[in-house]
């Protein structure tokens, strides 16, 4: 996922570092009005100081206001937008073109990120950690496996996004055709399905306890429950049903 740099404004390394650190807090003011918008302005602010005249200039204030308006994307991929918009602002691109670019980029950055991160990478990392737990791993081993694996992908994606945005400017669309985005969810999904076949039984076995096993009735109940819950799709949330079942069970156990 290399980012071929084309000539453009030079952004000092310390400013890029500040932008990356702020990128980790891009959702700090997430709200139902502008969603990520004010976060985008917050992340770009150190770079906008590089505009002629700095913080006191009209260009700085106009750019900061423009970039703090409504925006939505997957948080890990906002670096692509932030980098591209920063370069566009520093190059003095027409504001109307910047507005059009912001509108066009938001939707793909959201859907691509959701599929790759929330619906693929995160469950895969959870399943790997559950495998380590089922294999008898210590608390430290399970937690560090999950955090190191997950965040290797997380921070790489954020850093790559910012670099690709800064280097390509408004020409970042081809970056979204990267094989990682197109084929990643399919490959990760296949690996996750394979892992699930191992992780679920080994993890549940360890929760049940050493020397004990789930009886046939429990396994059957779990399989029937999976089919029923999967059939519900968006009409019922599994965690709410779990809450209800456990509440009834706790009440029953108190009354018997």
């Amino acid at each position: 996922m290399s980012a071929p740099r084309t000539s453009g404004p030079v952004i000092p390394r310390r400013v890029q570092t500040a932008m990356f650190l702020r990128l980790l807090a891009v959702q700090g003011s997430w709200n139902y009005e502008t969603l990520l918008g004010t976060g985008i302005g917050f992340v770009m602010e150190p770079a906008l100081r590089c505009l002629p005249g700095g913080r006191q200039s009209a260009r700085y204030r106009e750019a900061l206001a423009r970039e703090s308006r409504y925006f939505n994307a997957h948080p890990y991929l906002t670096g692509i937008a932030v980098g591209a918009l920063t370069r566009a602002e520093l190059e003095g691109v027409d504001p109307a073109r910047i507005e059009r670019f912001r509108s066009a980029l938001a939707s793909p950055l959201g859907s691509v990120g959701d599929r790759l991160v929330w619906a693929s990478w995160l469950p895969l990392c959870s399943l790997v950690a559950l495998c380590v737990f089922g294999a008898g791993g210590s608390a430290l081993a399970v937690v560090s496996t999950f955090l190191v694996l997950y965040n290797a992908g997380h921070f790489l994606l954020r850093a790559w996004g910012l670099q690709i945005g800064l280097s390509r400017g408004l020409n970042v669309a081809p970056a979204l055709a990267n094989p990682v985005f197109r084929q990643g969810p399919q490959i990760i999904g296949s690996a996750a399905a394979l892992l699930a076949g191992v992780a679920l039984p080994v993890a549940l076995q360890r929760v049940v306890g050493p020397g004990k096993g789930l009886n046939g009735g429990s396994i059957l109940a779990a399989l029937v429950g999976i089919v029923l819950l999967a059939g519900l799709r968006e009409r019922g949330e599994g965690w709410r049903i779990a809450l209800g079942v456990l509440a009834v069970f706790v009440l029953y156990s108190l009354l018997t």
Binding site: S190, A193, V207, S218, A222, I226, I241, L246
Partner: peptide, 29 residues
């Protein structure tokens, strides 16, 4: 056992919802 069955149900259904569109997912599982 009740806790384990509930967790297994929710996790199994959740993984199916997320990965059902993956090609040959049943075979991988």
């Amino acid at each position: 056992s009740v806790v384990v069955v509930v967790a297994a149900m929710v996790a199994g259904a959740a993984l199916w919802k997320v990965f059902h569109s993956v090609r040959h997912v049943i075979w991988f599982f």
